[in-house]
Nucleic acid binder design. Sequence first.
RNA 1: GGGUGAUUAGCUCAGUUGGCUAGAGCGCUUCAUUGACGUUGAAGAGGUCACAAGUUCGAAUCCUGUAUUACCCACCA
Length: 717
Amino acid sequence: MNDKYLSPYDPQSVEPQIYSEEEQSGLFNPDECVSAGHTESDAETYCIIMPPPNANGSLHAGHALFVTLQDIMIRYNRMQGKRTLWYPGADHAGFETWVVFEKKLQKEGRNRFEMDPKDLYNEILAFTMENKVFMEGQIKSLGASCDWSRLLFTLDDRVVKTVYDTFGSLNEEGLVYRGNRTVNWCPKHQTSLSNLEVSYEDRTDPFYYFQYGPFVIGTARPETKFGDKYVVMHPDDERYAEYKHGQQFELEWINGPITATVIKDEAGDPEMGSGVMTITPWHSDVDFKIAERHDLDFEQIIDWRGKLLPIAGEEFDGMNIKEARSKIVEKLDAKGLLVKIDEKYDHSVPVCYKCAREIEPQIRPQWFIKMQGLAEQAIKAVESGDTDIMSEQYEKTFKNWLAETPDWNVSRQILWGIPIPAKICVDCNHAEIDIENQLSQCSQCGGPVEQDPDTFDTWFSSGQWPYATLGYPDSQDFKDYYPTTVMETGADILTFWVSRMMMFGLHRTGQVPFEKVYLHGMVRDKKGLKMSKSKGNVIAPATMQDEFGTDALRMSLIVGNTMGSPMNLDPDKVRAYKKFANKLWNVARFVYSNTDGFDFESFDTTQLTADEQQLIDAWHETKTDIKSDMDEYRLYLAAEKLYHYVWHTFADEVIESTKEFTDPETRLITNDNKKYILLYTMGEFLRALHPFMPFVTSEIWKDYPKKDKKMLLVEKW
RNA sequence: GGGUGAUUAGCUCAGUUGGCUAGAGCGCUUCAUUGACGUUGAAGAGGUCACAAGUUCGAAUCCUGUAUUACCCACCA
């Protein structure tokens, strides 16, 4: 027996060695598996496209969970003899990286507005590349058996080309338009956000009532009221029956007398306040829609930095809106127009999900994708079963969201991303899509054109990831592996990402991008709370790996974690599986020390007694059971059953039953039947356990006395 | 406001299409063990499976209602 078994299992010394042996074997690449003869060239394929992690920081527990889940699926299916491809990637993560990078600049006392855009871009690129390498190292440390030779970055030329082609083909089908629309503008980040990137905060603020001509209007935002020259009420509100649609009247307002117009619109809610409101079409989506219906004027009151524009009058021009609010109230009060203030008005305020600053709705020309037809196709594909969302509780969310999703604003005003292939005319502002980058003058007025400074929403490019990675339309990978087998990702990005991949996949390739969707829940702390730096409850996977070993971390993330439900990570649980790794080590120590020199492959199994045969049959029953759990993605059950078998059946019963056959002198087992059972069964469960705990099983496998032994990675399960 | 889950041991959670005495990890009690094992093993305490009613030979599991709770979406002049 190898002396290494005399001391307890030490993950730190074993893991890097095992991973580098596996990686250097080249067998993470399915082509290598075929040419080395481990996989039949016509074998069924199995493919997972890795959700490309954001290359802007270190891995958190959620990454550890997805790497573990996918690696188990991949290793299991590879060991089933399938041609198995796990395609790794890295995401430039537009806005997310932008936010991280901006914080870094801030810390260094620098300001991006003072930097040359090219320098800025290059700095972010360098920053991202550095993080990308670091992140890949962490993924490797988790044991990911993905094919690094195919690694793709979301800003690689091949990806950009695919993204442009898709934008072009959407445009050809009339699904792209440029529109002046209300966007969710973050004054801090200087970009528009999608609806999904806006969160809401409950607040209690003062609510002001002002005299507006003959009416009383209520508002929580006096600072927008400068431009309000329309007063809206419900057509059926009898209190105001005397006022006709379009009727004009004079009134005294913030900066003197103005002329207001009465608008009758169903959006006016008679139950709300006085039933009368004034509107600010530029700075509210609801108001925008009313204004559109009645063809009203749009006036910008607040600039992109959150300051009042000249329309607010000399006194307020350039003033920050927060400061302006109280001053306006004071002024109106002085004029006798303040009716009352309700100090306790509860409402929810839209804020930027990154900086929590209030969203300022603004109007800005943006590129939009028409969603309705694309969404219908995606819904149909799920209903027909072409794509199976395995966690059924999310199927409804998926369909409901798609059925109601508005057109998608794909423009972002950030530098870090894929530039939108469009030109803007310097003279007439006309915007034109230019996929091939050939346009030199405006097709409308002949004036000079400039590149559209906006970039794509990162989900527009990552939504094309499955066919972009595989090299649509004519690469061999695309032919071999598309549609992919499983998309495994977090339930929280079902709408952000999975829905977009479905729509784009169907649009471009005519096929769904994946056959199954496995969604995992969020990893939380042991009390079920979301991990966050402010709560101080963040558990870094690297810490768990250092303390308990990667196999232990992997097991603890899997056992008891049902598909789609949140997962609570408790260090005590990881510790428990560290003990399990050591238990395996000691099982190996016992088996190897008792079977030195025993040739189990030449053993005549007919010598086994009925009771002994029973022990082997019991394993095979367990194995069959586990296999069906694996095939149906009940990984949590398979893991638990393996754990239970090794500890409570093999160690507690099989091993114990051999002890009466030991030589009193050497204290070794003398009975060949027992030796056979021990060796044979251990070989079986090492293989079965390998997808879950690749490191300790591989290390034990090195000493397994089998002829024509392969790496455990490519042994048959 | 709409939607989707959750509620099982002291704690954190499993429990597959309804089916033996409801399980795991950690914690707790007692005994044994230094001859595979950072110990481990044996035994044990601890559960009205949120509550109520129902379907069934049989319910933690299915139906209805109630309570509590979490998350997602929409949105409020």
